[in-house]
Simulated scan of single mutants.
Amino acid sequence: MGGSSQGLINLLRGWPNPDLLPVAQIKAAAASALSHPDVSTSGLLYGPDPGYEPLRQQLAKWLTSFYQPSQPIGPERICISGGASQDLACILQVFSDPVYTRHVWMVSPTYFMACRIFEDSGFYGRLRSVPEDNEGIDIEFLVRELQKAEKEAKLKGNNEPIYRHLVYAVPTFSNPSSMTMSLRRRQQLVSVARQYDALVITDDVYDQLQWQRDSASTRPHDTEAAMPRIVDVDRTLDGGSEREGADGFGNAVSNGSFSKIVGPGVRTGWAEGTKKFAYELSQW
């Protein structure tokens, strides 16, 4: 860029063009919400633990429309939060315990901020790297290492976990590898999570940031997801949480955020589980 007076562009963070920030729309939405007592009162007081019910209902409809699951997504599966990072911290505090949970298995390369959140939650020195292959997470490697970890835990008398393991992944348009995990690999991962009592935590924050698949299309972006989420695979595969031997809880949770499509500083997100998730998380 010799001779240019323009400064360097910092690619470390996801800074959008300021012209893309929806200032006018957010201002209008805030004015509308604060003008209606039935909305503003609930919003400014504590409100329901899982989040504002009409918001959860609309979010459920939007997610159902985008992901097209075999069964509609219900608002009872969704818990509103202050962003994907807060979601991850809350999930760890409710569904894991550093005393009993063996390891955090992270698809490598991984999102660097997630490492800090796991370490702050008591898993310092317990993060384990899992490589990718051409379909996503290397299942054979993961199973082999899970077996080793189980043998070590049993030798130490560690047999009373909440979830014995945590698996963290960005399965669609992964940050930073850009890999999208295949449907077959997602199904395999759910099966392995059930076998080893693992909770799969997926950051599904990039799913809406996709190019149109058909070059002849006039649409600015696709209106349907490129791949089913792992939480939806867990919900239906072999009967989901209602299958024989299941305890009513699933083995996957989806972490979502509006910040990627509205503004990186707009800290609004949601977490969605296979079943009973929003209720259990709200009790924390």
Score class of each variant (00 low, 15 high):
252 A>K: 03
55 L>M: 11
270 W>G: 03
23 V>D: 02
235 R>M: 09
198 A>W: 06
104 V>M: 09
172 T>N: 01
185 R>F: 01
266 V>F: 15
185 R>M: 01
22 P>Q: 13
101 T>A: 10
172 T>D: 02
284 W>Q: 12
142 L>M: 11
169 A>H: 03
273 G>F: 00
180 T>G: 03
152 E>V: 11
49 D>I: 09
274 T>L: 01
122 G>A: 13
101 T>Y: 05
243 R>P: 04
20 L>M: 08
173 F>M: 12
143 V>N: 03
198 A>D: 07
81 S>Y: 03
218 T>M: 12
250 G>F: 00
66 F>Y: 15
16 P>V: 11
168 Y>R: 02
54 P>C: 07
58 Q>F: 13
113 M>E: 15
32 S>T: 07
80 I>T: 03
72 P>V: 05
46 Y>M: 14
74 G>P: 00
3 G>R: 08
30 A>P: 01
8 L>Y: 02
50 P>A: 07
213 R>L: 14
177 S>G: 05
129 S>D: 14
159 N>R: 12
239 G>C: 09
262 V>Q: 05
232 D>I: 00
211 W>T: 13
35 S>M: 04
20 L>K: 08
164 R>W: 01
204 D>T: 01
261 I>T: 14
168 Y>M: 03
206 Y>D: 10
104 V>I: 15
119 E>D: 07
134 N>L: 13
32 S>N: 12
3 G>K: 05
50 P>C: 06
22 P>H: 07
104 V>G: 09
36 H>Y: 10
103 H>G: 06
209 L>R: 14
175 N>Q: 11
160 E>L: 06
228 P>L: 02
97 D>C: 15
2 G>F: 05
72 P>I: 05
113 M>S: 15
15 W>S: 09
263 G>I: 00
104 V>S: 08
283 Q>L: 14
22 P>I: 10
197 D>G: 06
203 D>R: 11
226 A>P: 02
2 G>W: 03
172 T>C: 04
166 L>T: 10
236 T>M: 10
248 G>L: 07
29 A>E: 08
69 P>S: 07
126 R>L: 14
196 Y>N: 06
142 L>I: 07
218 T>F: 12
44 L>D: 08
43 G>S: 08
223 T>M: 13
25 Q>E: 15
25 Q>A: 13
154 K>G: 00
55 L>S: 12
158 N>E: 08
283 Q>F: 05
140 E>K: 14
37 P>C: 02
276 K>Y: 08
221 H>D: 03
40 S>I: 00
169 A>E: 04
29 A>K: 05
36 H>R: 14
78 I>A: 02
164 R>A: 13
198 A>N: 10
264 P>E: 04
254 S>P: 00
50 P>K: 03
200 V>M: 04
180 T>Y: 02
145 E>N: 14
13 R>S: 11
67 Y>T: 09
73 I>M: 07
264 P>R: 12
57 Q>C: 08
57 Q>L: 10
209 L>Y: 04
248 G>F: 06
256 G>V: 04
87 D>V: 09
129 S>T: 07
16 P>Q: 02
89 A>S: 14
27 K>C: 03
268 T>W: 09
99 V>D: 14
150 E>P: 00
77 R>K: 13
278 A>D: 06
244 E>H: 05
230 I>P: 05
243 R>V: 04
75 P>S: 11
70 S>E: 12
9 I>E: 09
160 E>Q: 12
199 L>K: 05
91 I>D: 01
121 S>Y: 00
